[in-house]
Computed example of a mutant assay.
Amino acid sequence: MTIKMFKSLWGTEELSYRESFALIAEAGYDGVESGVPAPEHEGEFAELLDEYKLDYIALISSSGSHAETFAHGLERAAALKPLLVISHSARDCMPYEEQLHFFRQALEAERSAGVPVGHETHRRRAMFTPWTTAQLLRDLPELKITADFSHWCCVCESLLEDQTEALQLAFERTLHVHARVGYAEGPQVPHPAAPEYARELDAHTVWWRQIVELRRRSGFTHTTVTPEFGPPGYMHTLPFTNRPVADLWDTCLWMANYVRANIV
């Protein structure tokens, strides 16, 4: 089992695609995770992936008419030949039957596109808690997730000690990992290396190891991971100055190196 490490373009918006790709390749990442570029930049984006020998994970989201926007986003993403697609899917406030209807349509679109989709465990979305996600996964055996358990820590105000069964099902259905460390009061600790958050880092490490082990047993040769720490306002800032308490690039790189050393 190997780890394929991806760098999110979130927080690098001030850089050009070329500048970002050059830094990402130099740092030893295997690929880029980002939204689908605007149509006028798709050609450049694809050329840079090839030039820097980077894989691509696409990020899409649904809104409004959720099934239609999902299908449109997936079609655009598939044209760039990503390894997989991450989707922020449906809404937390949708009645459960509407969520089921959406995900059934999403699975049909996924089969047609021929690209695997991991629906992210994200706040505001259908998979915003362990138990809502577990219900969907039980009812739809083909459904897969992008595991970002930092959101669940925030929503549940805990390290999910009472969610063992739901977590186990989530591990089994994980397609991709967002390696961000959350805590009871938020989706991102100030820095994962800080000793005061050792308990949170340890909990996430245990979860990620179980995902990798399950994938190994299932015959997968690699697991894709993105150390998806975000800029302000995910990242803590100092009052009055709005100055970030840590460097985003260094934080993500620390997390990437930690995962490589401790997860496989």
Rank of each mutant, 00 (worst) to 15 (best):
A38I: 07
E47C: 11
L48D: 13
M127D: 06
K144L: 10
Q105M: 05
L59V: 11
C93M: 02
F102P: 07
S87L: 00
T133R: 13
H119P: 04
E108A: 14
L83W: 08
E142F: 02
A109L: 07
E75T: 15
E97L: 10
G118P: 10
E47N: 14
L137W: 12
E26G: 15
F102L: 11
R124P: 02
P39Y: 14
I60T: 08
Q99S: 08
G43M: 03
L140H: 05
E44A: 03
V36C: 09
E98C: 10
I24W: 10
R111F: 11
S61G: 13
R111K: 15
A126E: 06
R91C: 05
F103I: 04
L107C: 04
A67S: 09
R104I: 06
H119A: 07
S87G: 02
V117K: 02
L143M: 10
V85I: 15
K53C: 05
L80G: 00
E142T: 00
R124S: 12
V36Y: 02
H72C: 05
H122K: 04
T121Q: 02
Y96C: 08
L83A: 11
A25P: 12
S65H: 13
R123H: 14
R111H: 09
Y29C: 06
W131A: 08
P116W: 01
R111A: 15
H101K: 09
A38Y: 06
F70V: 01
M127V: 01
G114V: 07
A77L: 01
T133Q: 05
F103N: 01
L100M: 14
W131N: 05
E110V: 12
A27W: 14
D92P: 00
I60Y: 00
P82V: 11
V115R: 01
G28Q: 08
E44K: 03
P116I: 03
F45V: 01
Y56T: 04
E75Y: 13
G28C: 03
L83H: 13
A113D: 08
G73Q: 06
A106M: 07
H66C: 08
C93V: 12
R123W: 12
P130H: 06
L59H: 06
P37N: 05
T129I: 04
A46I: 01
F103D: 01
K144M: 08
G31M: 11
I24R: 15
S112F: 03
A77Q: 01
R91K: 15
A109M: 11
Q99N: 13
P39A: 10
L84H: 06
P141K: 06
D30I: 13
H101P: 00
L84Q: 14
D50G: 15
A109P: 07
G28S: 12
V36N: 04
S89P: 10
H88E: 08
P95H: 07
P141W: 09
G118W: 08
G73N: 07
A113R: 04
H88I: 02
P116E: 03
E108K: 15
E68Y: 03
V115L: 04
T69A: 04
H66T: 03
A106D: 06
E47W: 08
E75A: 13
R124D: 12
A126C: 12
H122T: 03
P95V: 09
M127W: 13
M127E: 08
G73R: 05
H66W: 04
G64S: 07
